[in-house]
Design a protein around this nucleic acid. Structure first.
Lengths: 211, 211
DNA sequence: GACTTTTCTTGACATTTGTCCAAACGTCCA
DNA sequence: TGGACGTTTGGACAAATGTCAAGAAAAGTC
Protein backbone atom coordinates (compact mmCIF):
# COMPACT_ATOMS: atom_id res chain seq x y z
CA UNK A 1 0.00 0.00 0.00
CA UNK A 2 2.75 2.39 0.95
CA UNK A 3 4.46 1.40 -2.28
CA UNK A 4 1.46 2.50 -4.27
CA UNK A 5 1.53 5.88 -2.68
CA UNK A 6 5.18 6.51 -3.34
CA UNK A 7 4.80 5.47 -6.92
CA UNK A 8 1.82 7.65 -7.65
CA UNK A 9 2.96 10.54 -5.55
CA UNK A 10 5.16 11.59 -8.43
CA UNK A 11 2.10 12.58 -10.45
CA UNK A 12 1.34 16.29 -10.61
CA UNK A 13 -1.94 15.89 -8.80
CA UNK A 14 -1.30 13.38 -6.08
CA UNK A 15 -3.37 10.25 -6.56
CA UNK A 16 -5.04 8.64 -3.63
CA UNK A 17 -5.88 5.18 -2.48
CA UNK A 18 -9.26 4.01 -3.82
CA UNK A 19 -10.90 4.07 -0.43
CA UNK A 20 -9.69 7.59 0.20
CA UNK A 21 -10.76 8.79 -3.18
CA UNK A 22 -14.16 7.25 -2.73
CA UNK A 23 -14.52 9.01 0.57
CA UNK A 24 -13.28 12.29 -0.78
CA UNK A 25 -15.86 12.18 -3.54
CA UNK A 26 -18.55 11.55 -0.97
CA UNK A 27 -17.34 14.51 1.00
CA UNK A 28 -17.20 16.80 -2.02
CA UNK A 29 -20.63 15.73 -3.15
CA UNK A 30 -22.07 16.16 0.34
CA UNK A 31 -20.46 19.57 0.72
CA UNK A 32 -21.94 20.66 -2.57
CA UNK A 33 -25.30 19.30 -1.51
CA UNK A 34 -25.14 21.29 1.72
CA UNK A 35 -24.51 24.48 -0.18
CA UNK A 36 -27.55 23.94 -2.37
CA UNK A 37 -29.67 22.80 0.56
CA UNK A 38 -28.67 25.93 2.43
CA UNK A 39 -29.98 28.02 -0.44
CA UNK A 40 -33.17 26.16 -1.30
CA UNK A 41 -34.07 24.23 1.82
CA UNK A 42 -34.84 20.56 2.23
CA UNK A 43 -38.13 20.65 0.37
CA UNK A 44 -37.04 22.31 -2.84
CA UNK A 45 -33.51 21.05 -3.28
CA UNK A 46 -33.68 18.28 -5.85
CA UNK A 47 -30.87 15.91 -6.65
CA UNK A 48 -30.55 17.46 -10.08
CA UNK A 49 -30.23 20.93 -8.63
CA UNK A 50 -27.70 19.68 -6.12
CA UNK A 51 -25.68 17.99 -8.85
CA UNK A 52 -25.90 21.00 -11.12
CA UNK A 53 -24.28 23.16 -8.47
CA UNK A 54 -21.46 20.65 -8.25
CA UNK A 55 -18.91 19.33 -10.67
CA UNK A 56 -20.78 16.05 -11.06
CA UNK A 57 -23.70 14.85 -13.09
CA UNK A 58 -26.98 13.97 -11.46
CA UNK A 59 -26.55 10.24 -11.97
CA UNK A 60 -23.42 9.98 -9.87
CA UNK A 61 -25.29 10.54 -6.65
CA UNK A 62 -26.56 6.99 -6.63
CA UNK A 63 -23.10 5.66 -7.13
CA UNK A 64 -21.91 7.20 -3.89
CA UNK A 65 -25.11 7.27 -1.89
CA UNK A 66 -28.05 4.95 -1.49
CA UNK A 67 -30.62 7.65 -1.96
CA UNK A 68 -31.38 11.29 -1.33
CA UNK A 69 -31.76 10.90 2.40
CA UNK A 70 -28.48 9.06 2.69
CA UNK A 71 -26.75 11.97 0.98
CA UNK A 72 -28.36 14.57 3.18
CA UNK A 73 -27.78 12.74 6.44
CA UNK A 74 -24.15 12.19 5.50
CA UNK A 75 -23.80 15.87 4.68
CA UNK A 76 -25.40 17.03 7.88
CA UNK A 77 -23.21 14.74 9.96
CA UNK A 78 -20.22 16.18 8.16
CA UNK A 79 -21.38 19.71 8.84
CA UNK A 80 -21.68 19.00 12.52
CA UNK A 81 -17.95 18.39 12.74
CA UNK A 82 -17.23 21.91 11.59
CA UNK A 83 -19.69 23.27 14.12
CA UNK A 84 -18.71 21.48 17.21
CA UNK A 85 -15.44 23.22 18.00
CA UNK A 86 -16.50 26.69 16.92
CA UNK A 87 -16.62 28.14 20.42
CA UNK A 88 -13.67 26.33 21.90
CA UNK A 89 -11.48 29.31 21.16
CA UNK A 90 -13.50 31.74 23.21
CA UNK A 91 -13.57 29.24 26.06
CA UNK A 92 -9.81 28.82 26.00
CA UNK A 93 -8.90 32.46 25.56
CA UNK A 94 -11.21 34.22 27.98
CA UNK A 95 -9.85 34.97 31.43
CA UNK A 96 -12.92 36.46 33.09
CA UNK A 97 -16.59 35.59 33.04
CA UNK A 98 -17.58 38.86 31.43
CA UNK A 99 -14.92 38.50 28.80
CA UNK A 100 -16.19 35.03 27.99
CA UNK A 101 -19.77 36.24 27.73
CA UNK A 102 -18.73 39.04 25.40
CA UNK A 103 -16.63 36.78 23.21
CA UNK A 104 -19.32 34.13 23.09
CA UNK A 105 -21.98 36.64 22.13
CA UNK A 106 -19.74 38.08 19.44
CA UNK A 107 -19.02 34.64 18.07
CA UNK A 108 -22.71 33.79 17.88
CA UNK A 109 -23.33 36.95 15.92
CA UNK A 110 -20.41 36.17 13.63
CA UNK A 111 -21.83 32.70 13.04
CA UNK A 112 -25.11 34.13 11.82
CA UNK A 113 -23.40 36.61 9.56
CA UNK A 114 -21.07 34.04 8.03
CA UNK A 115 -23.24 30.96 7.89
CA UNK A 116 -26.86 31.91 7.87
CA UNK A 117 -27.78 29.49 5.06
CA UNK A 118 -26.22 26.60 6.92
CA UNK A 119 -28.13 27.34 10.07
CA UNK A 120 -31.48 27.81 8.46
CA UNK A 121 -30.86 24.43 6.89
CA UNK A 122 -30.20 23.02 10.32
CA UNK A 123 -33.50 24.34 11.64
CA UNK A 124 -35.22 23.10 8.54
CA UNK A 125 -33.89 19.59 9.04
CA UNK A 126 -34.68 19.59 12.72
CA UNK A 127 -38.25 20.49 11.85
CA UNK A 128 -38.34 17.80 9.18
CA UNK A 129 -37.20 15.26 11.74
CA UNK A 130 -40.43 15.90 13.60
CA UNK A 131 -42.20 14.33 10.60
CA UNK A 132 -39.63 12.06 9.00
CA UNK A 133 -38.33 9.40 11.35
CA UNK A 134 -35.40 8.62 9.07
CA UNK A 135 -33.87 11.96 9.97
CA UNK A 136 -34.30 11.69 13.70
CA UNK A 137 -31.22 9.73 14.60
CA UNK A 138 -28.87 12.14 12.88
CA UNK A 139 -30.73 15.20 14.15
CA UNK A 140 -30.77 14.04 17.74
CA UNK A 141 -27.09 13.26 17.56
CA UNK A 142 -26.26 16.71 16.29
CA UNK A 143 -28.58 18.33 18.80
CA UNK A 144 -26.69 16.55 21.54
CA UNK A 145 -23.40 17.69 20.14
CA UNK A 146 -24.59 21.28 20.08
CA UNK A 147 -25.85 20.91 23.62
CA UNK A 148 -22.41 19.74 24.73
CA UNK A 149 -20.81 22.61 22.88
CA UNK A 150 -23.00 25.14 24.65
CA UNK A 151 -22.42 23.45 27.96
CA UNK A 152 -18.65 23.76 27.68
CA UNK A 153 -19.16 27.51 27.38
CA UNK A 154 -21.59 27.73 30.26
CA UNK A 155 -19.52 25.53 32.53
CA UNK A 156 -16.42 27.61 31.88
CA UNK A 157 -18.41 30.76 32.48
CA UNK A 158 -19.45 29.43 35.85
CA UNK A 159 -15.89 28.46 36.70
CA UNK A 160 -14.65 31.94 35.89
CA UNK A 161 -17.48 33.44 37.91
CA UNK A 162 -16.70 31.14 40.83
CA UNK A 163 -20.29 29.90 40.91
CA UNK A 164 -22.23 26.75 40.16
CA UNK A 165 -24.45 26.34 37.11
CA UNK A 166 -28.09 26.89 37.93
CA UNK A 167 -29.54 25.07 34.97
CA UNK A 168 -29.07 21.75 33.22
CA UNK A 169 -27.13 21.43 29.97
CA UNK A 170 -30.38 20.77 28.11
CA UNK A 171 -31.97 23.91 29.53
CA UNK A 172 -28.98 26.10 28.76
CA UNK A 173 -28.95 24.83 25.21
CA UNK A 174 -32.68 25.30 24.71
CA UNK A 175 -32.58 28.87 26.00
CA UNK A 176 -29.61 29.92 23.90
CA UNK A 177 -30.96 28.12 20.89
CA UNK A 178 -34.21 30.02 21.24
CA UNK A 179 -32.36 33.33 21.19
CA UNK A 180 -30.19 32.22 18.30
CA UNK A 181 -33.10 31.06 16.21
CA UNK A 182 -35.02 34.29 16.64
CA UNK A 183 -31.92 36.28 15.77
CA UNK A 184 -31.35 34.19 12.65
CA UNK A 185 -34.91 34.69 11.52
CA UNK A 186 -34.69 38.39 12.20
CA UNK A 187 -31.41 38.61 10.32
CA UNK A 188 -32.82 36.79 7.31
CA UNK A 189 -35.84 39.05 7.07
CA UNK A 190 -33.56 42.06 7.22
CA UNK A 191 -34.25 43.28 10.72
CA UNK A 192 -31.30 45.50 11.41
CA UNK A 193 -31.22 45.31 15.19
CA UNK A 194 -31.45 41.55 15.17
CA UNK A 195 -27.76 40.80 15.66
CA UNK A 196 -27.14 43.52 18.20
CA UNK A 197 -30.14 42.33 20.14
CA UNK A 198 -28.76 38.81 20.16
CA UNK A 199 -25.47 39.98 21.62
CA UNK A 200 -27.25 41.94 24.33
CA UNK A 201 -29.61 39.10 25.14
CA UNK A 202 -26.80 36.58 25.46
CA UNK A 203 -24.82 38.86 27.75
CA UNK A 204 -27.90 39.33 29.89
CA UNK A 205 -28.76 35.65 29.92
CA UNK A 206 -25.40 34.27 30.96
CA UNK A 207 -25.46 35.67 34.53
CA UNK A 208 -28.91 34.12 34.98
CA UNK A 209 -27.56 30.66 34.24
CA UNK A 210 -25.43 30.63 37.40
CA UNK A 211 -26.62 30.00 40.94
CA UNK B 1 -80.22 42.16 2.02
CA UNK B 2 -81.85 41.92 5.40
CA UNK B 3 -84.97 40.70 3.64
CA UNK B 4 -83.05 37.80 2.17
CA UNK B 5 -81.96 36.67 5.56
CA UNK B 6 -85.42 36.67 7.08
CA UNK B 7 -86.75 34.71 4.15
CA UNK B 8 -84.18 31.95 4.34
CA UNK B 9 -83.96 31.85 8.11
CA UNK B 10 -87.04 29.67 8.23
CA UNK B 11 -85.15 26.72 6.71
CA UNK B 12 -84.11 23.96 9.13
CA UNK B 13 -80.43 24.46 8.50
CA UNK B 14 -80.08 28.17 8.38
CA UNK B 15 -78.84 29.28 5.01
CA UNK B 16 -76.16 31.88 4.88
CA UNK B 17 -75.37 34.78 2.70
CA UNK B 18 -73.19 33.73 -0.22
CA UNK B 19 -70.20 35.53 1.16
CA UNK B 20 -70.53 33.69 4.45
CA UNK B 21 -70.87 30.34 2.82
CA UNK B 22 -67.89 31.01 0.63
CA UNK B 23 -65.92 31.91 3.70
CA UNK B 24 -67.09 28.88 5.60
CA UNK B 25 -65.92 26.62 2.81
CA UNK B 26 -62.57 28.30 2.84
CA UNK B 27 -62.37 27.72 6.56
CA UNK B 28 -63.34 24.08 6.30
CA UNK B 29 -60.88 23.49 3.51
CA UNK B 30 -58.11 25.27 5.37
CA UNK B 31 -58.84 23.37 8.57
CA UNK B 32 -58.64 20.11 6.68
CA UNK B 33 -55.42 21.22 5.06
CA UNK B 34 -53.95 22.02 8.46
CA UNK B 35 -54.72 18.53 9.70
CA UNK B 36 -52.95 16.93 6.76
CA UNK B 37 -50.07 19.38 6.97
CA UNK B 38 -49.71 18.55 10.63
CA UNK B 39 -49.32 14.90 9.75
CA UNK B 40 -47.09 15.14 6.70
CA UNK B 41 -45.36 18.49 6.97
CA UNK B 42 -45.11 21.26 4.45
CA UNK B 43 -42.85 19.40 2.05
CA UNK B 44 -44.83 16.21 1.61
CA UNK B 45 -48.40 17.41 1.87
CA UNK B 46 -49.71 17.63 -1.68
CA UNK B 47 -52.95 19.28 -2.68
CA UNK B 48 -54.36 15.89 -3.64
CA UNK B 49 -53.51 14.44 -0.26
CA UNK B 50 -54.99 17.45 1.46
CA UNK B 51 -58.19 17.17 -0.57
CA UNK B 52 -58.39 13.42 -0.04
CA UNK B 53 -58.44 13.91 3.72
CA UNK B 54 -61.30 16.34 3.29
CA UNK B 55 -64.79 16.09 1.90
CA UNK B 56 -63.78 17.87 -1.28
CA UNK B 57 -62.12 16.91 -4.51
CA UNK B 58 -58.66 18.10 -5.39
CA UNK B 59 -59.84 20.55 -8.03
CA UNK B 60 -61.92 22.60 -5.62
CA UNK B 61 -58.86 24.07 -4.02
CA UNK B 62 -58.35 26.41 -6.94
CA UNK B 63 -61.90 27.54 -6.74
CA UNK B 64 -61.41 28.86 -3.23
CA UNK B 65 -57.72 29.64 -3.23
CA UNK B 66 -55.30 31.10 -5.73
CA UNK B 67 -52.71 28.42 -5.20
CA UNK B 68 -51.17 26.11 -2.66
CA UNK B 69 -49.41 28.84 -0.76
CA UNK B 70 -52.56 30.90 -0.52
CA UNK B 71 -54.32 27.93 1.07
CA UNK B 72 -51.56 27.29 3.56
CA UNK B 73 -51.10 30.90 4.57
CA UNK B 74 -54.83 31.26 5.08
CA UNK B 75 -54.87 28.14 7.19
CA UNK B 76 -51.96 29.20 9.32
CA UNK B 77 -53.48 32.61 9.94
CA UNK B 78 -56.65 30.85 10.99
CA UNK B 79 -54.76 28.57 13.33
CA UNK B 80 -53.17 31.55 15.02
CA UNK B 81 -56.54 32.72 16.23
CA UNK B 82 -57.07 29.52 18.18
CA UNK B 83 -53.62 29.86 19.69
CA UNK B 84 -53.57 33.39 20.81
CA UNK B 85 -55.92 33.22 23.77
CA UNK B 86 -54.81 29.82 25.02
CA UNK B 87 -53.08 31.11 28.11
CA UNK B 88 -55.45 33.91 29.01
CA UNK B 89 -57.22 31.63 31.44
CA UNK B 90 -54.18 30.92 33.54
CA UNK B 91 -53.39 34.64 33.58
CA UNK B 92 -56.88 35.52 34.77
CA UNK B 93 -57.27 32.76 37.33
CA UNK B 94 -53.94 32.75 39.10
CA UNK B 95 -53.66 34.76 42.28
CA UNK B 96 -49.97 34.31 43.09
CA UNK B 97 -46.83 34.31 41.02
CA UNK B 98 -46.04 30.69 41.83
CA UNK B 99 -49.54 29.60 41.02
CA UNK B 100 -49.31 31.35 37.67
CA UNK B 101 -45.97 29.72 36.90
CA UNK B 102 -47.37 26.30 37.75
CA UNK B 103 -50.50 26.78 35.70
CA UNK B 104 -48.57 28.18 32.77
CA UNK B 105 -46.13 25.26 32.80
CA UNK B 106 -49.00 22.78 32.99
CA UNK B 107 -50.77 24.46 30.10
CA UNK B 108 -47.65 24.34 27.95
CA UNK B 109 -47.34 20.62 28.62
CA UNK B 110 -51.00 20.13 27.82
CA UNK B 111 -50.56 21.98 24.56
CA UNK B 112 -47.83 19.61 23.45
CA UNK B 113 -49.87 16.57 24.39
CA UNK B 114 -53.01 17.76 22.63
CA UNK B 115 -51.62 19.52 19.62
CA UNK B 116 -48.19 18.22 18.79
CA UNK B 117 -48.89 17.91 15.04
CA UNK B 118 -50.04 21.51 14.87
CA UNK B 119 -46.96 22.79 16.58
CA UNK B 120 -44.49 20.82 14.56
CA UNK B 121 -46.21 22.29 11.54
CA UNK B 122 -45.68 25.72 12.97
CA UNK B 123 -41.96 25.13 13.39
CA UNK B 124 -41.85 23.64 9.94
CA UNK B 125 -43.43 26.70 8.42
CA UNK B 126 -41.26 29.08 10.37
CA UNK B 127 -38.23 27.25 9.03
CA UNK B 128 -39.65 27.36 5.52
CA UNK B 129 -40.10 31.09 5.84
CA UNK B 130 -36.33 31.37 6.15
CA UNK B 131 -36.19 30.18 2.54
CA UNK B 132 -39.51 31.17 1.02
CA UNK B 133 -40.19 34.86 1.20
CA UNK B 134 -43.87 34.37 0.42
CA UNK B 135 -44.34 32.83 3.85
CA UNK B 136 -42.52 35.47 5.81
CA UNK B 137 -45.27 38.00 6.26
CA UNK B 138 -47.67 35.49 7.77
CA UNK B 139 -44.98 33.84 9.87
CA UNK B 140 -43.71 37.11 11.31
CA UNK B 141 -47.23 38.16 12.13
CA UNK B 142 -47.91 34.96 14.01
CA UNK B 143 -44.56 35.10 15.74
CA UNK B 144 -45.46 38.54 16.99
CA UNK B 145 -48.81 37.30 18.20
CA UNK B 146 -47.15 34.50 20.12
CA UNK B 147 -44.68 36.95 21.56
CA UNK B 148 -47.52 39.12 22.82
CA UNK B 149 -49.23 36.05 24.25
CA UNK B 150 -46.13 35.09 26.19
CA UNK B 151 -45.61 38.62 27.32
CA UNK B 152 -49.07 38.82 28.87
CA UNK B 153 -48.12 35.85 31.02
CA UNK B 154 -44.73 37.23 31.98
CA UNK B 155 -46.07 40.68 32.72
CA UNK B 156 -48.77 39.29 34.96
CA UNK B 157 -46.22 37.07 36.67
CA UNK B 158 -44.15 40.13 37.45
CA UNK B 159 -47.18 42.00 38.75
CA UNK B 160 -48.07 39.17 41.11
CA UNK B 161 -44.45 38.97 42.24
CA UNK B 162 -44.38 42.71 42.80
CA UNK B 163 -41.31 43.07 40.59
CA UNK B 164 -40.38 44.53 37.22
CA UNK B 165 -39.66 42.40 34.16
CA UNK B 166 -35.95 41.94 33.59
CA UNK B 167 -36.14 41.02 29.94
CA UNK B 168 -37.79 42.30 26.80
CA UNK B 169 -40.90 40.65 25.35
CA UNK B 170 -38.81 39.33 22.46
CA UNK B 171 -36.30 37.77 24.82
CA UNK B 172 -38.95 36.19 27.00
CA UNK B 173 -40.59 34.69 23.96
CA UNK B 174 -37.34 33.40 22.49
CA UNK B 175 -36.33 31.72 25.74
CA UNK B 176 -39.67 30.04 26.33
CA UNK B 177 -39.95 29.07 22.70
CA UNK B 178 -36.56 27.41 22.91
CA UNK B 179 -37.71 25.31 25.85
CA UNK B 180 -41.00 24.50 24.17
CA UNK B 181 -39.40 23.45 20.93
CA UNK B 182 -36.96 21.10 22.61
CA UNK B 183 -39.77 19.60 24.64
CA UNK B 184 -41.87 19.09 21.53
CA UNK B 185 -39.02 17.36 19.73
CA UNK B 186 -38.34 15.20 22.75
CA UNK B 187 -42.00 14.33 23.03
CA UNK B 188 -42.24 13.37 19.37
CA UNK B 189 -39.23 11.08 19.55
CA UNK B 190 -40.73 9.38 22.58
CA UNK B 191 -38.52 10.76 25.31
CA UNK B 192 -40.55 10.13 28.43
CA UNK B 193 -39.14 12.82 30.67
CA UNK B 194 -39.56 15.47 28.03
CA UNK B 195 -42.81 16.96 29.29
CA UNK B 196 -41.90 16.81 32.96
CA UNK B 197 -38.63 18.49 32.15
CA UNK B 198 -40.45 21.26 30.34
CA UNK B 199 -42.64 21.96 33.36
CA UNK B 200 -39.63 22.07 35.65
CA UNK B 201 -37.65 24.26 33.28
CA UNK B 202 -40.46 26.75 32.90
CA UNK B 203 -40.97 27.00 36.65
CA UNK B 204 -37.25 27.60 37.07
CA UNK B 205 -37.08 30.12 34.27
CA UNK B 206 -39.92 32.37 35.31
CA UNK B 207 -38.23 33.78 38.45
CA UNK B 208 -35.20 34.62 36.32
CA UNK B 209 -37.28 36.83 34.06
CA UNK B 210 -37.93 39.33 36.84
CA UNK B 211 -35.56 41.98 38.13
C1' DG C 1 -90.44 24.91 -14.69
C1' DA C 2 -86.78 27.30 -17.32
C1' DC C 3 -83.03 30.44 -16.82
C1' DT C 4 -78.77 31.96 -14.75
C1' DT C 5 -75.18 31.63 -11.38
C1' DT C 6 -72.52 29.29 -8.20
C1' DT C 7 -70.24 25.23 -6.86
C1' DC C 8 -67.96 21.02 -7.65
C1' DT C 9 -65.92 16.87 -10.30
C1' DT C 10 -63.16 14.81 -13.38
C1' DG C 11 -59.69 14.32 -16.43
C1' DA C 12 -55.82 16.31 -18.77
C1' DC C 13 -51.48 19.03 -19.12
C1' DA C 14 -46.69 20.06 -18.55
C1' DT C 15 -43.05 19.71 -15.14
C1' DT C 16 -40.38 17.91 -11.86
C1' DT C 17 -38.90 14.30 -9.05
C1' DG C 18 -36.12 10.03 -7.41
C1' DT C 19 -34.33 6.18 -9.30
C1' DC C 20 -32.20 3.11 -12.38
C1' DC C 21 -29.35 1.53 -16.36
C1' DA C 22 -26.66 0.77 -20.43
C1' DA C 23 -22.95 2.52 -22.46
C1' DA C 24 -18.72 5.39 -22.49
C1' DC C 25 -14.64 6.75 -20.19
C1' DG C 26 -10.36 6.38 -17.80
C1' DT C 27 -6.90 4.02 -15.15
C1' DC C 28 -4.16 0.29 -13.93
C1' DC C 29 -2.00 -4.33 -14.17
C1' DA C 30 -0.76 -8.59 -16.96
C1' DT D 1 -1.95 -4.17 -26.35
C1' DG D 2 -5.77 -5.79 -24.15
C1' DG D 3 -8.77 -6.73 -20.71
C1' DA D 4 -10.62 -5.83 -16.04
C1' DC D 5 -12.27 -2.68 -13.00
C1' DG D 6 -13.89 1.52 -10.92
C1' DT D 7 -16.03 5.72 -12.32
C1' DT D 8 -18.98 8.83 -14.83
C1' DT D 9 -22.35 10.20 -18.07
C1' DG D 10 -26.70 11.17 -19.97
C1' DG D 11 -30.93 9.41 -21.02
C1' DA D 12 -35.18 6.83 -19.86
C1' DC D 13 -38.95 5.80 -16.82
C1' DA D 14 -42.75 5.83 -13.71
C1' DA D 15 -44.72 8.33 -10.22
C1' DA D 16 -46.18 12.54 -8.26
C1' DT D 17 -47.22 17.41 -8.42
C1' DG D 18 -49.49 22.16 -9.19
C1' DT D 19 -52.44 24.01 -12.26
C1' DC D 20 -56.15 24.49 -15.30
C1' DA D 21 -60.46 23.90 -18.02
C1' DA D 22 -64.73 21.83 -19.63
C1' DG D 23 -68.63 20.26 -18.24
C1' DA D 24 -71.83 18.13 -14.61
C1' DA D 25 -74.40 19.13 -10.62
C1' DA D 26 -76.60 22.01 -7.41
C1' DA D 27 -78.51 26.28 -5.81
C1' DG D 28 -80.78 30.34 -6.53
C1' DT D 29 -83.93 33.40 -9.21
C1' DC D 30 -87.67 34.77 -11.92
Amino acid sequence: MVGDVTKTATARTARQLPADKHDERRRALAASALRTLGELGYARASLREIAQNSEFSHGVVHYYFDDKLDLIVYGVRQYKETCVRRYDGVVADSTTADELADAFAAKLVETIVDEAPMHRLWYDLRSQSMFETSLREAVLMIDNTLKDMVWRVVRRYCELAGREPAVSPATAYALLDGLFQQALLGHLVGRRKSLDDLATEVRELMPRLVA
